[in-house]
């Protein structure tokens, strides 16, 4: 794998992670448990999709085959998506949505912080914008997880179940593929194992305040980074892509 191919793959993955999670959060639009949360989730989705636009545009330039951000988002099949499985799981209830966002945000923030010092000027510029947005995301998901965990018996039960269910999907975040390994060597990307320490500290701090238990590490799911996904990504993409698939090239 050349450095260019690795960079294309890594940038595409970062875009896919944000796009898929952004789409899942956008599913709360009009369905939020309270108005303020409806607005919060759609704002966060907007941030993530905005970051995706920057990343996929860059990925298209790196690839050099003339694919635009829209081509990459709307015309790739499930197996060509390189996101981790964590972000594609259905939104389920609000405790699950919050717990998933928290586990991702706690990874996303140190990633963006590290990228502001990347030797790749383009990634650095994208991260320079994203880092402040992601700071708000982590604060939002942390506060709600604490509220649920340290709330009623019912909210505590649901939050703990969500964290337990999601735990097996967190391992994949920190296992580098060939591209990520290559790019960590020259300072384009941070080492994922370095990000894990910070993620772990944030998780411990917030779970502790939320009176939730940190699940034991057991079997971890994987495969998303290679394009192998759960049964949930296909239907999600079908809905997301239907307009471009039905009317190729349609514009607003």
């Amino acid at each position: 794998m050349t450095r260019e191919e690795a960079l294309f793959r890594a940038v595409l993955r970062m875009g896919d992670n944000n796009l898929v999670l952004g789409h899942r959060l956008s599913e709360w639009c009009g369905h939020g448990p309270v108005l303020e949360e409806d607005i919060a989730q759609t704002n966060i989705a907007l941030d993530l999709i905005g970051q995706t636009r920057n990343l996929l545009t860059y990925a298209g330039e790196l690839e050099g085959k003339g694919r635009s951000e829209d081509d990459l988002a709307y015309l790739r099949g499930e197996r060509e998506y390189l996101n981790v499985q964590l972000v594609e799981l259905p939104k389920a209830d609000y405790a699950f949505t919050i717990a998933r966002s928290f586990l991702y945000d706690a990874f996303h923030l140190p990633l963006q912080q590290a990228l502001t010092e990347s030797r790749d000027e383009h990634l650095k510029a994208i991260a320079g914008k994203a880092v402040k947005e992601v700071t708000y995301h982590l604060r939002h998901s942390s506060e709600w997880l604490i509220r649920f965990g340290d709330g009623t018996e019912e909210s505590h039960r649901r939050a703990q179940e969500a964290v337990d269910e999601l735990w097996r999907y967190t391992g994949e975040l920190f296992v580098p593929d060939e591209a990520e390994e290559l790019l960590a060597k020259d300072g384009t990307l941070p080492k994922l194992t370095d990000l894990k320490a910070e993620w772990s500290a944030t998780v411990d701090r917030v779970l502790n305040e939320a009176t939730l238990k940190r699940p034991a590490d057991g079997w971890m799911a994987g495969g998303g980074k290679k394009g192998v996904h759960t049964e949930h990504l296909g239907p999600m993409l079908a809905e997301m892509q239907i307009l471009q698939r039905t009317f190729p090239g349609v514009e607003w």
């Binding site: 303020e36 704002n43 966060i44 907007l46 708000y136 604060r139 939002h140």
Partner: peptide, 27 residues
């Protein structure tokens, strides 16, 4: 502070306890 996320990405939602008016803050 009512919500860190307001009517647009750049604003948060507040309420004044003195005059009771809700208002946006550019965050």
């Amino acid at each position: 502070l009512l919500s860190r996320f307001g009517s647009t990405a750049c604003k948060a939602l507040y309420q004044c306890k003195a005059c009771k008016e809700p208002f946006d803050q550019f965050k």
